[in-house]
């Protein structure tokens, strides 16, 4: 890979990563705390790219005929592989891959990405005027591992996007990721008493806990809906 192309690849990497981090798009792929790391490394890539580009353009190729960066390599594979860097860079730049949605959720099998609270017991929910907002994985954990005890007689508000269930109903779904979208798993809650909005639509559902009639931890918990409101997708779609 020629010196100037290398520099351009570095520069492009830096610029594209800077762009998606500055604009919140990076939240489609990784978590919020990565922001400063991404900004710094993107900045370093840009600096390195510009520096290398400046030198590559100032000094014509034959100045390096003594031993350039590819001389002494006994392989030509590595330079060619390096072109692959442009694949995710182009993807980010051109099509901006969307956050994981119903396709990934549909292929996600039963086990909910929830770990049982090892202290035993869930904290009682704070008092609120009106429905209390819970994260979907919080609700699911309390429903599955605590029998919903901490949620009796409370009006609850849950947010997620719509996916189809095998039985013809619908799930409220959200992805939980620890590192990045690559390890994300779907939390699903079966919504009862409400007709299904369009698949992929983000909604806020208000209602109450209800037993899903099963002791199987892999079966999604249930939620009895009283109200379903369509909303814009949140800034960070992952939990």
């Amino acid at each position: 890979m020629k010196r100037d192309v290398q520099a351009l690849v570095l520069l492009t990497m830096g610029v594209v990563i800077w762009r998606i981090t500055w604009s919140d798009l990076f939240l489609n792929y990784v978590k919020e705390p990565m922001r400063p790391l991404l900004l710094v490394s993107a900045g370093l890539l840009v600096v390195l790219g510009l520096w290398s580009l400046a030198i590559a353009l100032r000094q014509p190729a034959e100045a390096h005929s003594g031993a350039g960066e590819d001389h002494g390599h006994d392989h030509t594979r590595a330079p060619k592989v390096a072109w692959l860097i442009l694949l995710p860079v182009a993807a980010m730049f051109i099509i901006t891959p969307p956050p994981l949605g119903s396709d990934a959720a549909a292929r996600d099998s039963g086990t909910q990405p929830l770990s049982q609270n090892s202290d035993g017991g869930y904290e009682p929910l704070p008092e609120t005027d009106g429905p209390i907002t819970l994260n979907l994985d919080d609700y699911a954990a309390r429903a599955l591992f605590d029998g919903g005890q901490s949620m009796t007689d409370r009006e609850i508000s849950l947010t997620g996007f719509v996916t189809e269930s095998e039985s013809g109903g619908w799930y409220l779904t959200r992805f939980v990721s620890s590192c990045c979208a690559a390890d994300a798993s779907a939390v699903k809650v079966e919504i009862q008493d409400a007709p299904s909005p369009p698949v992929e639509q983000w909604v806020t559902v208000t209602g109450v806990y209800t037993d899903n009639g099963s002791t199987d931890y892999t079966k999604p918990p249930a939620f009895a809906a009283q109200d379903v409101v369509a909303i814009e997708p949140p800034r960070d779609t992952y939990l």
Binding site: M13, I17, I20, F26, N28, Y29, V30, M34, L37, L38, V40, S41, L87, P88, A91, M92, I95, P97, P98, P99, L100, G101, D103, A104, C179, C180, A181, A182
Partner: peptide, 15 residues
Amino acid sequence: TWTTVLVSIVVQAVP
């Protein structure tokens, strides 16, 4: 989905 997963692994790793 494939592209999102690919990009996320790379973006996570870059720093």
